[in-house]
Amino acid sequence: MMVPVRCFTCGNVVGEHWEEFKARTREDDENPKAVLDELGVERACCRRMLVSHKDLVDIVAPYQ
């Protein structure tokens, strides 16, 4: 639904990077690897949190 606040594995806060990550990779077509490096999301466990996330709020919103 919403991006997880923290990495499930190590507990690092990753939610803050989501909007920038999404804008840069989905709209500006930047390389996700380069974006994550720039955002300072170093570990593989934190990177997968952002790479594998899908926002579902818009999909469930009509069924409130």
Binding site: M2, V13, G15, E16, W18, D55, V57, A61
Partner: peptide
């Protein structure tokens, strides 16, 4: 809050 930009919930 130590981080200002963590989305809590998207509101319509």
């Amino acid at each position: 809050p130590a981080e200002e930009n963590v989305p809590i919930i998207d509101l319509k």
